[in-house]
């Protein structure tokens, strides 16, 4: 084709580049975080619990880039270990919440009728109680540890996923292609498994990704309140919690760095999730078709 001798122009190039920049930096941060929590503990033989009372509450320096805490432990190392625990809790809890939410939402939407109404009333009831309160109630029933926190977050966060999945199933169920499948002799099970579930899975997966930051925050909040992980186990929440005293004394670093470790990775995950959501948006997909 004679494309070469035409003078082609593009529009909107700048908008695309800012978005790519956002996506790339989010991806880089997430990759860095994952690498750090996976590789640092096994590859280095540094002890995050190593107490050095001669070097307590040191401001950031070359030896301790994030400074040290009130018993002289290196805060960078503590942050990485804390992130490891928080991320683990966040991911597992998000998966638990998504599995429960998808199952409840899909069942509710596919069955319809009184079963749907009953399930949604239950969801409404749980939604009307603050997350954190419910979460505290759950952790209070167990000894402090990782798993109670996972259970607490999982049990309180599936509600929104269930709503999203149900709405999606309801909208898919009224599509002509479901009518066509029924007319083609497909059973109820086949319609659900082959047409409805694959349609909602991308939404559910996206909800799971966006849930990870939420779960991390939730864990941090529980630990900060002293109800989550035991104080000696580094998590971002316990780090911020134990730094409260020194903050009042004017030492800012034990609070700032764990705080940043909560905020920056969650923003990055949310950024990636947002880009993914844009790609799922049917309007954007239709731009590519003619």
């Amino acid at each position: 084709m004679a494309d070469q001798n035409l003078d082609w122009r593009t529009r909107g190039a700048r908008r695309r580049s800012t978005r790519t920049w956002r996506v790339r930096s989010s991806a880089a941060i997430v990759a860095l975080v994952v690498l750090a929590v996976l590789l640092v503990p096994p590859l280095t033989n540094l002890d995050q619990q190593a107490v050095d009372l001669t070097a307590k509450l040191q401001p950031p320096s070359w030896a301790h880039p994030f400074g040290t805490d009130d018993v002289g432990r290196d805060l960078l190392l503590r942050c990485v270990y804390g992130l490891r625990v928080s991320l683990l809790v966040g991911v597992v809890a998000a998966v638990v919440a998504t599995v429960i939410g998808t199952a409840v939402g899909a069942l509710s939407g596919a069955l319809g009728g009184w079963a749907d109404r009953a399930v949604m009333r239950v969801v409404d009831t749980f939604s009307s109680v603050p997350h954190l309160l419910l979460g505290i109630f759950v952790v209070a029933m167990f000894r402090p540890g990782v798993w109670p926190v996972v259970v607490s977050v999982g049990l309180t966060h599936w509600l929104s996923t269930a709503r999203i999945v149900r709405a999606e199933v309801l909208s898919l169920r009224s599509r002509p292609y479901v009518d066509a499948a029924i007319s083609g002799g497909a059973s109820r099970r086949r319609v659900t498994v082959r047409h409805l579930l694959p349609g909602v899975l991308p939404q559910a997966a996206l909800a799971a990704v966006l849930m990870v930051p939420h779960a991390i925050w939730h864990e941090s909040a529980l630990s900060f309140l002293g109800l989550g992980l035991p104080a000696h186990q580094a998590s971002l929440g316990t780090l911020v919690q134990s730094a409260r005293g020194s903050l009042l004394a004017g030492d800012w670093w034990p609070t700032l760095f764990p705080g940043l470790f909560i905020i920056v990775p969650t923003l990055a995950v949310a950024g990636l999730g947002g880009a993914w959501r844009e790609r799922l948006d049917p309007r954007r997909r239709s731009e590519l078709t003619l």
Binding site: R175, P176, Y177, D179, A180, A181, R194, H195, P198, G199
Partner: peptide, 8 residues
């Protein structure tokens, strides 16, 4: 046709 066909 767009609504009558499962996009996958």
């Amino acid at each position: 046709p767009r609504l009558s066909a499962d996009p996958r």
